[in-house]
């Protein structure tokens, strides 16, 4: 299964970026092998005047990821992922690899709604 994690750089050892829409990049990893499959830069959305959450999550949905592990998801980001059928787990922290382990150990929370307000 493809898992997407917002990260500060494209590596399993990078820190999880606490922002979703304005994350530096997204690491796409495979949950079975726990390896990084690819990464998607997010520069354009990170610097966007508005709508970063909408556009970044649209990119995630197109990547084929079935699950997103993030620190926080705002209302717009959540709505896109929910509509696209992508599961959102919040509370990810530490490195990308650690977040993946926490997810596989069942330690992250499946979100049924946004857990933070819009970041403005």
């Amino acid at each position: 299964m493809k898992v997407c994690i917002p990260a500060e750089s494209p590596s399993l050892d990078a820190a999880v970026d606490p922002r979703l829409g304005r994350a530096a990049c997204f690491v796409i990893a495979d949950s079975e092998s726990r390896q990084m499959l690819t990464s998607i830069p997010n520069t354009q959305n990170k610097l966007a005047a508005a709508g970063a959450g909408v556009q970044a999550t649209q990119t995630i949905a197109k990547s084929g990821a079935e699950v997103v592990l993030c620190a926080n998801a705002g209302p717009n980001a959540f709505r896109v992922l929910h509509a696209a059928g992508v599961s959102v787990y919040t509370g990810a922290a530490g490195t990308v690899a650690e977040a993946l382990t926490a997810f596989l150990d069942g330690k992250l929370e499946l979100a049924d709604q946004a857990n933070v307000q819009g970041h403005w």
Binding site: N45, A48, A49, A50, G51, A52, G53, V54, Q55, T57, Q58, A61, R79, V80, A83, A84, G85
Partner: peptide, 12 residues
Amino acid sequence: FGAIAALETGVL
């Protein structure tokens, strides 16, 4: 304005 997301499931 980043106001539209086009997904396989439709346009938001």
